[in-house]
Write a protein that binds this DNA or RNA. Structure first.
Length: 747
DNA sequence: GTAGGGTTAG
């Protein structure tokens, strides 16, 4: 008889369809049945079984204790069998422990089965199941069921439900549960208050979190941690988070644990506050927590964000245990060794997850071949991560980056679920590859099939920003939609608009968008600075650059290049060199060839040709084309034929088919009155087959909503209406001649 | 000696 019950239960546990049935029964209030169950597999067991055999018997304490310390499914199932055979299962302490075991060891369905077999579950039984759910929706439905079953709500139930409500989209449930806590008097329970702080924190409703925290009579370490992490997550309260951390340590004398440290350091990451972060690092070392996996992981982010990759790497190497987060962070720190690190991670027996793949895919640069991209894609496929939406999105980005929009499109078309992010990846992919028309078409589809968000708009705007053709009227139309949708103060949209108008519209419109209240990112700062730099507005550029640095945004290569350009066009030699030095010293950026070229240009234009040449010689790996071009240009302006010849030769050697050097050299001879050599260079150019780049022009017919642009090159007759167009051009020409004659006659 | 709160990577 006993064996039969045992068999029944063991079967139930390992047959998920049965478990699924029980789940349905729980939700639909169908009375559970445990009849008609196939045979079990029972393994011999452990000291407890020995005790049972030797007639000592197993008591309640032994059974629950054994369950608590066990994590292996096999051991748990065996204990389950013993509990049933010894009759201990009928004690709620034992059956509840069993549910807890199954739930914590990742076999929630088995816990549900046990629950269904308990004749009179108590509130602990219900709570144990309640906290085992993955999804907050399921958990809250189960809580409703508890209420219908007449289970009396206790602080534990409330704590669990509040913590689930933090995951919901809608904050109103948190508010409801908060008032329930006040009504029932459970708000004095520390656990309940802590859960409330966290739930409010997750909804970034920091005022309410703070209120709960402030009104607590007794706070424990978890309360402080919840408050600190809530402030850290909010995004704009990092300073307050630090303040609370300091109060906790200084005023309350509490000893921070790994979670306090990780939250406080995360706040430093947000502020890019290397100094304070390092201090907290030292503090963690003092209390022996610096190599804790959580603390080390966030320390790596700190050093990475503050561009101290070496320190981040040291933290990684000092870790005794590393998890998938540590490895993934390390991959994002050392992108050039991403594949190598990925392999080491697998040797270390750490399984990658979707984030790892997203990072790894991101690490591949346009310099990588399609083949390498396909290899990573293959690993994603084998490990079954390629169907994850975020991984697919990254793959779209990858193929776009590698220049293969066909592959990107294929991934997109194969996706079962397309998020708006997927559309955004596709649109920005077309944008990067200069396929503006496709980007606009995809944007239209996205608007039909999905709900465009700020990123969709930002992507399509960036497409028209980088398009060869100027789609300004389309840009204005998009801008109108954006204002209507209230997205004009979104940092990405506003940033993209600043960039669009800076590059394609007018600096006035760009400045107008920039003056709107939105969170200025590096991109938007760089866009507005670049725009003013192009117009030679030196004072404005320097003022904006100062404002940007003061708002703790670190400049990147593009920003510095813009500032250098401004210095260059206004001949600010000292400032230019100062910025160049700070780029290396203060901002830890390796100059690009363009930055060197800028300084060469700056010195050259000012007539300091010798300094320029000296600087040029110091460029690591030799001067790039742009630096040589700058110097050659300067030689032309200042008439230094000798240096010009040397530079032109170097340039022609580097790029024999580029017309620039030949044209400049020939012009220099011509300026000098040396027509013979000027002609010689031109001849030389012709013999080598070097051609000047073809100039393009375009006409927007501007009819209705049409986006069609008519493009022309010189001597181009590929347009379908070429004959008519040339006809009109000719008749216009003759009309002009007539007009000119008339004017002459009148004179 | 059965149930509840705080945590890191794109």
């Amino acid at each position: 008889m006993l064996l039969c019950r045992l068999k029944q239960q063991a079967l139930l546990l390992h047959r998920s369809p049965t478990a699924a049935l029980i789940t349905r029964q729980l939700f639909h209030e169908i009375p559970a049945t445990t009849s008609a169950l196939p045979p079990p597999v029972v393994q011999p067991l452990t000291p407890i079984r020995a005790r049972l055999r030797s007639g000592v018997g197993v008591d309640l304490a032994a059974a629950t204790w054994a369950l608590k310390s066990s994590r292996e499914l096999k051991t748990g199932s065996q204990l389950h069998a013993i509990a049933v055979s010894s009759g201990l299962f009928s004690f709620l302490a034992v059956s509840n422990s069993l549910m807890c075991f199954y739930s914590k060891s990742g076999h929630f369905e088995s816990a549900l089965v046990v629950f269904a077999s308990i004749p009179n579950p108590d509130v602990v039984s219900w709570n144990t199941i309640l906290c085992g759910f993955d999804s907050c929706v399921d958990a809250l439905r189960f809580a409703q069921r508890m209420r219908h079953a007449g289970v009396l709500l206790d602080p534990v139930t409330l704590t669990i439900v509040i913590s689930f409500s933090g995951d919901l989209q809608d904050i109103s449930v948190v508010h409801q549960l908060h008032s329930l806590a006040l009504k029932s008097g459970f708000d004095s329970d520390v656990f309940v208050s802590n859960a409330l702080i966290t739930a409010y924190g997750r909804h970034e409703c920091i005022e309410s979190a703070r209120k709960v925290f402030d009104e607590m009579l007794m706070r424990d370490l978890v309360s402080w941690n919840a408050m600190i992490s809530g402030l850290t997550q909010e995004g704009s309260c990092a300073d307050e988070a630090i303040e609370v951390f300091v109060r906790m340590v200084g005023d309350e004398g509490l000893r921070p644990d790994h979670i306090s440290f990780s939250s406080a350091i995360a706040a430093c990451v947000q502020n890019s506050d290397l100094q304070l972060g390092s201090q907290i690092h030292g503090f963690a070392a003092k209390v022996g927590l610096k190599t804790h996996i959580l603390v080390s992981n966030v320390l790596m982010s700190l050093y990475y964000k503050c561009r101290c990759e070496d320190s981040a790497t040291i933290v990684f190497h000092e870790m005794r245990n590393r998890n998938v987060v540590s490895w993934t962070t390390m991959i994002s720190i050392d992108l050039s060794n991403a594949v190598l690190l990925f392999n080491s991670m697998r040797i270390d027996d750490i399984q990658p997850n979707d984030v790892t793949f997203v990072t790894l895919i991101y690490a591949l640069s346009p310099q990588h071949s399609i083949k390498e991209g396909e290899m990573i894609h293959g690993i994603c496929f084998k490990t079954r991560f390629s169907t994850e939406v975020n991984v697919s999105n990254s793959l779209i980005n990858l193929y776009a980056k590698l220049g293969s929009m066909e592959d990107a499109r294929k991934i997109f078309d194969d996706m079962e679920i397309k998020e708006i992010i997927s559309w955004n990846s596709l649109i920005s992919g077309y944008a990067q590859n200069g396929l503006c028309e496709e980007a606009i078409l995809s944007f239209s589809s996205a608007a039909i099939h999905s709900k465009p968000n700020q990123y969709t708009f930002a992507s399509v705007i960036s497409a028209i920003t980088s398009a060869q053709t100027v789609y300004l009227s389309y840009g204005h139309r998009l801008h109108c939609c954006i204002i209507k949708l209230g997205l004009n103060t979104d940092e990405y949209v506003a940033g993209a608009l600043v960039d669009l108008y800076a590059k394609r519209g007018s600096i006035v419109e760009s400045q107008l968008v920039f003056d709107e209240p939105f969170r200025k990112s590096l991109i938007s700062w760089s866009a507005i600075i670049s725009a003013h730099a192009k117009h030679g507005n030196y004072e404005i550029v320097m003022k904006l650059f100062e404002e940007m640095v003061n708002s703790s945004i670190l400049p990147d290569h593009i920003t510095i290049l813009a500032v250098l350009t401004a210095c260059c066009s206004c001949g600010m030699i000292t400032m230019g060199r100062q910025i160049f030095d700070s780029m290396i010293g203060e901002y830890k950026l390796d100059p690009w060839p363009e930055h060197y070229a800028c300084i060469v240009d700056l010195l050259g234009k000012a007539g300091k040709l010798a300094d320029a040449e000296e600087f040029l010689m110091k460029i690591p790996n030799g001067p790039g084309v742009s630096a040589l071009q700058s110097l050659l240009g300067a030689c032309r302006i200042h008439g230094d034929l000798e240096l010009g010849k040397r530079v032109a030769e170097a340039l022609m050697e580097k790029e024999p088919m580029e017309s620039g050097a030949y044209v400049l050299m020939s012009n220099m001879y011509a300026n000098n009155g040396d027509w013979e050599n000027a002609a010689r260079v031109r001849r030389w150019m012709r013999d080598k087959g070097v051609k000047k780049e073809v100039a393009f022009s375009w006409v927007d017919a501007g009819i209705g909503d049409s986006l069609f642009m008519h493009k022309f090159a010189s001597d181009d007759n590929t347009h379908p209406l070429a004959e008519q167009i040339y006809g009109v051009a000719e008749s216009l020409g003759s009309e002009m001649m007539v007009l000119e004659e008339d004017e002459l006659m009148a004179a």
